[in-house]
């Protein structure tokens, strides 16, 4: 047998095994039971099913919370990135310590600390209640990650750009704002979009802090439908939530892939 023939044989075998597995599964599985458990007809109706709450409360809040956490994280990240690149050494140390600290912790721990730890210790009422506290925790962590992304973007802008601006007499601040940052942001759009996708998924952690009915994000709404509502006792609402998450995240990850391809091509 030549090498090509052997490779072909291996491929045929792999397909045969796959086909056999599919056939066995189809014969053995009880499709009616599976369907009722994962896609219950009571839960998927438009008028009386779970969609209404899942979308108008859960998905809307998920997007809202993600946007808040992203904007906050970006602002915090920008400050931290500029501090890390500052000529003033103590600023650099503080930013480095912050970034290392918050990247080394689970986001959930920080969120619970903001949601329960601080309020208990200092009788502090967080703005926006528990959800607001959780979002602050998310921002604190996201800021640390985004700082590193932004720093890499700023450092990727060629040194000649700064030199050109300074040689024209522009001050350091103006050089950063007018010349360096616009180019850095263009470089970091793909990784920042990734960051956005990660945040969408991280907002699910808010479920563990608890929220009023109207403040629930998508995972919380789906969790409540597991035990109450038309499809209670089945996993239908989780499947529905999963689909809704994918509707938001898949286009974004595709967008990132497209942006990255385009950026690679644009490199002169």
């Amino acid at each position: 047998m030549t090498r090509r023939e052997r490779a072909l044989l291996v491929q045929v075998l792999l397909y045969a095994v796959l086909a056999a597995a599919v056939v066995v599964l189809a014969l053995v599985a009880d499709w009616a039971v599976i369907k009722e458990n994962f896609w219950s007809s009571d839960g998927i109706g438009w008028a009386d099913g779970n969609w209404g709450d899942l979308i108008t409360t859960g998905m809307v809040n998920t997007i809202k919370y993600t946007a808040i956490a992203f904007a906050g994280g970006l602002a915090l990240g920008l400050v931290l990135a500029l501090m890390r690149l500052s000529p003033v050494a103590p600023y650099r140390w503080m930013a480095t310590a912050y970034i290392e600290f918050f990247r080394g912790l689970p986001a959930l721990v920080v969120m619970m600390f903001m949601g329960f730890g601080l309020p208990i210790a200092f009788q502090w009422t967080p703005p926006g209640g528990t959800v607001g506290a959780g979002l602050i925790g998310l921002i604190l962590v996201a800021g640390a990650y985004m700082a590193e992304t932004l720093r890499a973007g700023i450092q990727a802008v060629p040194k000649g750009q700064t030199e050109a601006a300074r040689s024209l007499g522009m001050r350091p601040g103006a050089t950063t704002v007018k010349v360096v940052l616009p180019q850095a942001f263009r470089i970091v759009i793909p990784p920042l979009t990734n960051e956005f996708v990660l945040l969408i998924k991280d907002t699910a952690l808010l479920f563990l802090l608890g929220a009023a009915a109207s403040e629930r994000e998508l995972t919380s709404v789906a969790r409540d439908f597991l035990t109450s509502g038309p499809s209670a006792g089945t996993a239908t609402s989780l499947i529905q939530a999963a689909l809704l998450y994918l509707i938001i995240t898949l286009p974004l990850t595709q967008l990132v892939a497209w942006l990255e391809r385009r950026q690679r091509k644009a490199v002169r």
Partner: peptide, 12 residues
């Protein structure tokens, strides 16, 4: 005024 070997125009 300063002119560089690599031009260093602002690409954005």
């Amino acid at each position: 005024g300063m002119v560089f070997q690599q031009f260093n125009l602002f690409p954005h």
